[in-house]
Design a protein around this nucleic acid. Sequence first.
DNA 1: TTGACCTTTGTCATTAAGTGACATTATAAT
DNA 2: ATTATAATGTCACTTAATGACAAAGGTCAA
Lengths: 206, 206
Amino acid sequence: MNDMVPSPHDESQPMSLRERKKRLAQTTIEEAALRLFQQRGYEHTSIQDIADAVMMSPRTFFRYFASKEEVLFGPIHAVQSDGIRSLQQAASSESPLVALRTTFGYLASLYQQQRASFLIRYQVAKQTPSIASIYLYAMMEAEPAFCDALYVHLESVTDRNKIRFLVAIYMTAFRVALEEWMENGVQGDLVSLLGEYLEYFSSLSL
Amino acid sequence: MNDMVPSPHDESQPMSLRERKKRLAQTTIEEAALRLFQQRGYEHTSIQDIADAVMMSPRTFFRYFASKEEVLFGPIHAVQSDGIRSLQQAASSESPLVALRTTFGYLASLYQQQRASFLIRYQVAKQTPSIASIYLYAMMEAEPAFCDALYVHLESVTDRNKIRFLVAIYMTAFRVALEEWMENGVQGDLVSLLGEYLEYFSSLSL
DNA sequence: TTGACCTTTGTCATTAAGTGACATTATAAT
DNA sequence: ATTATAATGTCACTTAATGACAAAGGTCAA
């Protein structure tokens, strides 16, 4: 069994000057925005402020990000998409349970790779009530797609509902582990933390 | 053991004319807004449209509802608050597990009492991507308060994390049961559906 | 290198959510 | 009836987001 993890984003082409400038603008905006969010808070940072900071017109900001939230949650969406692809692949050759374990382990590793970035985003989101909902949703939006990926195995309606519940449980365990990890400043190993929660789960009786 | 369910909103005072007019205006706005949301969709219904429909100025709309979302999710917030109160009370005399069972049973009964209203809200939310996040959050926002309510029993850090996970699991079971119930047009008994999921949970091994 | 072509950017205008200030009207209390 | 209090409407303002169009910048072939 090889790596099983699809590389997040194919990064092979030479990249034209145009492409490079685009990427540069994107990361420039993102860095400036995150810095401002941390300094003044998300809500007290307007698009105009961000645009001023990077010397662009507000209109141009919206050519790189569909909204202010997108700056904050873009990478989370990207991770979720990677998770969906991972699960689709894993589900084709493994049982639902094994596939889920594989995928959530993979997701944990992605979070760990970008821990600094995700910590900032988490902290900004936590300090901003109007954003908390979007953060939660960003972490769970993949749930339906996860279910779809696993439906290839079992097809009766009751089985589908069980799969749905199973996915939701796994997502919950992952979310709780992630939150504890974030609260502790992304120190320690997220993968083993998730493992502890799943192990504890087995000992539960409701 | 008596009812254990605190009455949602104390409804005893005679109510002055002013109060009655206020309530009337509130329900009038809400009904008109929900009707418009169903007809044209949430995003294609502006505050102006709602204000026109009830012959009020847009400014007055905002004196009754803090936002457009509030019209849609107000009752869900209210149910969550009731749940928190219920759990605080139950947790003082029962074990965490029993208290959770009691409270989620109570919540299920509240949803069933207002099933028509909640179904509309669910359907509107489901049709509106920009709103889906807020719907999810509305259903889970009470999680931290639930944890706090149960922390009165156990106090070590590891126990708190376990309580946190336990609450999250229960919320997940409830959410999945609720979604299935909604998808099926709020037919059948939500309480027993929740029971089935919790029972199935016990048979799981991750 | 020049010029034609396509992309990116800026400017301007517009819709919609949300908020503060203040005057006007309706209700309550004496 | 008169005064205090609360509700409403009007106006002005900020901010997010989007469409249209012109100006500037990059790409590539001759």
